[in-house]
Nucleic acid binder design. Structure first.
Length: 216
DNA sequence: GTCCGGTTGT
DNA sequence: ACAACGGGAC
């Protein structure tokens, strides 16, 4: 059996399902994806709650409020002026589909990805998070955690986002639920053990990890 | 003081 | 390759 899927099974057996993305609906996922750029999820939750309590967490309502007001509402997420603008850019794109997820899903994952990447403030990771977790399309999300963990495991030597993405998509069956769970498990493991200062001696993957073996 | 479920402009 | 954007938690 291939090693990439084997790691997945190890992680799933150890941690169990992660229930990602934590949100009530697809739009909440997209807002969270933009707000969590280089920001801890804890701080994003406060912003989401803030918007919910004011009954503003809907595309049309967020489109109508002023950029500066939105910035203040999402203050806890950091980079709030930037992110307010980025949300507005995204909402402008959504408007072309009448804020209708069904119309969006009529398009192919390839063309949607291109459209998302053309929005200022949405890069590869955010685009892929939206495609996978909000639109439920089969695309593997790469982030700093994924790179760090799999470089340490010694399973990949590349450096670029696309190299990592190809690596996962070539070694796994094209499956939204699998991609969803795997990325979430990588984040979990990277927060608990495969941190910047890793806890190799306590890690259950140490025997099959280059970094871990060297740190025993 | 460090780190965070990044992206952009130089 | 590197600075800018930034609040909140530990």
């Amino acid at each position: 059996m291939n090693k990439v899927y084997e790691i997945y099974k190890n992680l799933y057996d150890f941690y169990g399902p992660q229930h990602w993305w934590p949100a009530d609906n697809w739009f909440e996922v997209t807002v969270g994806a933009i707000l969590t750029q280089n920001t801890s999820w804890n701080n994003v939750e406060k912003s989401i709650e803030n918007l919910k309590q004011r009954d503003l967490l809907e595309p049309k309502k967020l489109s109508e409020i002023k950029e500066n007001d939105l910035a203040q509402l999402i203050r806890s997420s950091g980079f709030y002026n930037l992110k307010s603008k980025r949300l507005k850019n995204f909402l402008e794109w959504l408007k072309k589909y009448n804020y209708d997820i069904d119309k969006i899903k009529d398009k192919s994952v390839t063309s949607l990805r291109e459209e998302l990447l053309n929005i200022k403030g949405i890069g590869k990771e955010t685009a892929d998070s939206i495609l996978l977790y909000a639109f439920e399309m089969p695309i593997f999300v790469i982030d700093a955690y994924t790179k760090r963990m799999f470089l340490r495991l010694g399973l990949i030597s590349g450096k670029e986002y696309d190299e990592f993405q190809d690596f996962f998509e070539k070694n796994l069956r094209r499956d939204v639920q699998l991609y969803n769970e795997y990325h979430a498990l990588i984040v979990k493991h990277s927060k608990v053990y495969c941190k910047k200062m890793p806890k190799c001696s306590e890690c259950f993957l140490k025997e099959k990890c280059k970094w871990g073996v060297n740190n025993l």
